[in-house]
Write a protein that binds this DNA or RNA. Structure first.
Lengths: 153, 153
DNA sequence: GTTGAAACAGAGACAGA
DNA sequence: TCTGTCTCTGTTTCAAC
């Protein structure tokens, strides 16, 4: 799908605030409301917009602790990789996970109620995934920025 | 603000799909539509829900490259810390940033059009922030999971 | 918690550039 | 094909009860 300048403006606005009305959105990008709506629909159909979600403040729901975890897996046990990926996907405390080059094989962002809860989660992780050679955790002291917004220029 | 079981159910659903109608939301949590609406409004007023956003697929807008960057700052130049934080906040390619204990002082998630674009961004980062002692970058090979959803149980 | 009125969203049909 | 207008139904929003 080829994105027009207008599509990109729509994406920019919707990444800032998805509760914006079609009328306001249309006005800001110089379209009629129905055209803006059709563009939006197309962007969703084509999976440029994957979904719309509410962003919840972790501190307000009892999860003030974040951890960054670098996991190093045993490379000679490839049959244990899919279970590890499934564990990552299915564990809601794992907010984000990337497989990377460099030191650690995988980096996880984890949200927890406390360091004790995190510790229990890390224990479960080690038990359920016997291919974890080691992992290093960094405690998040300050969250400077959090978001999934992508520049669209 | 004290969260009821119903509030938590609302948060769970809204984190999955914020385009859900009030009628459906109300039905799922066992409320009338107008009550569900007032709950939602309260959750937004109290900043439990920070905002609602569209999630855009980076690959569909020409940003297939992600990097994790660990930055180590000179500790004896505290006057350069606020400018660094401002740079992080104002640079849209930096999607997320945490100040951490452990090896690196700061960890950044960066989205880029290509490794060359990332390289140029890293150069600008070094030029604009003379307190960066060193940084290590990990190329993201696989994105297993991406999201900001918080478990609310 | 319910009702009701006005604004808004979503989807379809239609005509014009 | 993309845009704007029109139209209809269902939804949201907010005030009043």
């Amino acid at each position: 799908m080829t994105l027009t300048r207008t599509d990109r403006e729509i994406l920019k606005l919707m990444q800032q605030d998805a509760t914006i009305t079609l009328g306001v959105l249309a006005e800001r990008v110089g379209l009629s409301p129905s055209s803006a709506q059709r563009r939006l629909q197309k962007l969703r159909e084509e999976r440029v917009i994957l979904r719309d979600v509410s962003i919840v403040d972790p501190r307000k729901v009892g999860r003030p602790v974040s951890m960054l975890v670098e996991v190093e897996l045993e490379r000679d046990r490839p049959e244990l990789l899919p279970p590890f990926m499934r564990w990552v996907t299915e564990t809601p405390e794992v907010q984000e996970a990337w497989g990377t080059s460099g030191r650690g094989d995988y980096t996880l962002v984890i949200t927890a109620q406390s360091v004790e809860h995190f510790d229990a989660l890390a224990d479960r992780m080690m038990e359920l995934n016997r291919n974890i050679r080691k992992f290093t955790t960094s405690v998040v002291l300050k969250t400077l920025k959090r978001g999934l917004a992508v520049p669209v220029d």
